[in-house]
């Protein structure tokens, strides 16, 4: 049963299985285990980023294709939901329509980019995606009549997903309101998308992608049309990234260039894939969890540590909360140095 759900791709390490189980458990019960606006927000962000990073892993870790347009596809999904909700009204039909349209547009755009650039060397694709992503980001901030420009769009989701909607009193001290439903929509959607991708990478198609990553020359010589597979992987990955964007927009009830399209998010995705372990899918879960937690809590943790050792020379300055980005950088360098195959790669080896 578990084997079928995970598409036969077992964690293959007791430690890894325990960590994944713990993450799943915490995310599944986050509103009850860690009640609070900020903690639940962090949990939702982790769910969305797991899907986003996994879809990037499909491209980079399995297909060996470097893309810088992943946030663009993420943004297309988010704006799809926002625009549909703004213009069609606050309904589930608008959410579904916006999400599907976003995924469709993302896949179509990926198809065009892929068809034009994946025939040539893979590096060319990376450059084209960078150019297109920058162009789209500029376009979104300029077309303020449609997209709200730099301010983004705030929109209303169905009443059932808002904090004002109550469907019960309290359960374990947690208010049963629409925000809780909204979280579980994000959680369930993310879980399904992740399991779907796990399915894809373990299918015959996934094996061909790995073969192309390893040796595209030979993959062609045993009869696989390499371009076709690369384009298919790009479209699939783009569509899933767009759906992750839709979930994120539904959760935030807001879209803006900074939350969905920025280059910073692209770099976050890269870090998450590398820290977690490329070409493993489970690496996306661990990478996203570690990095989102670090981004949200490292500052607090360091603030606490800094004040705990007050009085000592130099150390408090080093651990000052304002230096958290420096330490995040150090953590990243160390993890790449010590775990070149990522956390998952390291755990599976031992």
């Amino acid at each position: 049963m578990i084997k079928a759900v995970l598409s036969g791709d077992m964690p293959r390490s007791v430690v890894l299985a325990s960590i994944l189980g713990l993450i799943l458990f915490c995310l599944a019960l986050a509103p009850f285990l860690f009640p609070g606006v900020r903690t639940v927000d962090t949990a939702a962000r982790i769910c969305v980023f797991v899907v986003l990073v996994a879809s990037y892993d499909l491209l980079l870790g399995y297909g060996g294709i470097v893309s810088f347009a992943h946030t663009m596809f993420f943004g297309i999904g988010a704006y799809g939901v926002a625009l549909a909700s703004t213009h069609l009204g606050r309904g589930f039909d608008a959410l579904a329509g916006g999400a599907l349209a976003g995924a469709g547009v993302a896949a179509a755009l990926a198809f065009v980019i892929g068809l034009f650039s994946l025939r040539v060397r893979a590096i060319f694709f990376a450059m084209i995606t960078l150019a297109v992503a920058s162009a789209v980001a500029v376009l979104v901030s300029q077309l303020s009549g449609l997209t709200g420009g730099e301010d983004g769009l705030t929109f209303q989701t169905p009443r059932e997903l808002g904090p004002a909607f109550k469907f019960g009193d309290e359960l374990f001290g947690v208010k049963l309101n629409g925000k809780l439903l909204s979280y579980y929509l994000v959680f369930t959607g993310s879980l399904i998308l992740f399991l779907l991708m796990l399915r894809v990478v373990n299918s015959p198609f996934g094996r061909v992608l790995q073969a192309i990553r390893e040796n595209d020359f030979r993959a062609e010589a045993i009869g696989y049309r390499v371009v076709r597979y690369r384009v298919a992987a790009t479209c699939l990955s783009a569509a899933v990234a767009a759906l992750a964007g839709s979930l994120y927009a539904i959760w935030l009830r807001y879209v803006g260039p900074d939350t969905t399209l920025s280059m910073e998010i692209m770099i976050d995705i890269l870090l998450m894939v590398v820290i977690g372990g490329m070409g493993t899918m489970y690496g996306a879960v661990i990478g996203a969890t570690v990095l989102v937690l670090a981004q949200n809590y490292l500052q607090n943790l360091m603030g606490a540590a800094g004040s705990a050792i007050e009085g000592l020379p130099v150390l408090p300055q080093l651990l000052d909360a304002d230096r958290w980005l420096l330490w995040l950088g150090v953590l990243f360098i160390l993890s790449v140095y010590f775990f070149p195959t990522g956390i998952v790669g390291r755990l599976r080896r031992s």
């Binding site: 399915r199 299918s203 015959p204 094996r207 061909v208 073969a211 390893e214």
Partner: peptide
Amino acid sequence: LFPNLSVLENVRLVVQSNAGQGMNLWSMA
């Protein structure tokens, strides 16, 4: 060859190509 895949997987990729299963996204390999 495909250096980081197993010996079996290398050969199976060829067999799979002949069987026309490459675009199968759903079943488990």
